[in-house]
Nucleic acid binder design. Structure first.
Lengths: 200, 200
DNA sequence: GTCTATATTTGGATAGAC
DNA sequence: GTCTATCCAAATATAGAC
């Protein structure tokens, strides 16, 4: 007789609970802030004792790390599935808008992924690799639009993140800064690309 | 006989001790991070018991607030005493460089003044008024250079803070982003001002 | 896998003697 | 103004029974 649960079944169950905990963590962080997330609080939300969480995550930082990976994976999925215009300049605007939408739609996630506000947290190298891929995506969009060098890429990230930071810090939910995104992109492209048409 | 200390003398002594505590707080925050600052830790640094600090500051937040005011007052002093070039465009570059230097020279201060990273802290209205004056300064420099409207001012703060944020977050101490400050300013001015010379 | 019990640390803040 | 003595709350994490 096979009294024991099959290993893969147990594994699936384990993963499902992990997912459940992670979702609850996002929920708490969104409602009360990233730093307000605690093991006790999280445990209560999923109907467990705090100590039982250690079966699924070795530490609180591991939970932050899983959230970090989670958010980046989500963004990568969005970026991959976005239908880009044939015109690389239009495509760059599209991609930038998608990124801004992703960030503004969830300030907590933005804080975890792009600001360094959680006290002792640093992403693991595995999670950080995902963040790198996100940046590579932007790099490709820029190259397609005629911007190739590293310095111009740095200026781009500064410009977009500058608008986002101001928006999220001073007027979350509004558009006082991010509504200048298109203007900022045009300004940026005028600076960093050499127009080959209109030679006169 | 006048056995009691004169009130103003007592007041001066009180202020001196306050100053001493504040300096120690900056020192600790710089060495171990803003969030690592605790009453016990701070008290040990000045040779007191933690409880005695409450004679000088009613709460921990009051200490953060005093630090916030401190930093902004310092910046205002620097801005006021800077000799600006007669050419408003050159003057804008000067002022921007001074600001960037102020920020990069003390990451902890930058974090307290311009990022919102301390968990529950929000500056009092008195302290915030100082921060407003700092922004007014930038506003005047921009107006002198021919940038008057609010949207352009928002774009300016996004641009400068964007470079700073990237620099402080990803490579503190380096210049990978801030070395593009002049280029970014020129790009910005080209976008936001109408050149009256070269009408052809 | 989940629980109870507990260790351990750390924090902010108050009361009252001196 | 400074101290001792506490209070109170909250956090992460481990040990071991079931």
């Amino acid at each position: 007789m096979k009294g024991a649960t099959r290993p893969d079944r147990r594994h699936r169950r384990h993963e499902a609970t992990r997912r459940e905990i992670l979702d609850a963590a996002w929920s708490i962080a969104r409602e009360e802030g990233l730093t307000a997330l605690s093991m006790r609080h999280l445990a209560r939300a999923v109907g467990m004792e705090a100590q039982s969480l250690y079966t699924y995550f070795p530490s609180k930082h591991a939970i932050y790390d899983a959230m970090f990976a989670d958010g980046n994976a989500h963004l990568l999925g969005l970026q991959s599935s976005l239908e880009l215009d044939a015109d690389p300049v239009v495509a760059l605007h599209q991609a930038a808008h998608q990124f801004v939408e992703f960030c503004t739609s969830d300030p907590t996630r933005y804080q975890l992924l792009f600001q360094r506000t959680v006290p002792g947290f640093e992403p693991s190298s595995e999670s950080y690799a995902l963040a790198r891929k996100v940046l590579d995506f932007a790099s490709e969009r820029l190259a397609a639009a005629g911007v190739a060098d590293q310095t111009a890429l740095d200026l781009y990230t500064a410009l977009v993140s500058g608008l986002l930071n101001q928006q999220m810090s001073n007027e979350p939910g509004g558009d006082r800064w991010i509504r200048h995104l298109d203007r900022a992109l045009d300004m940026y492209l005028r600076e960093t690309t050499t127009d080959r048409h209109e030679p006169t």
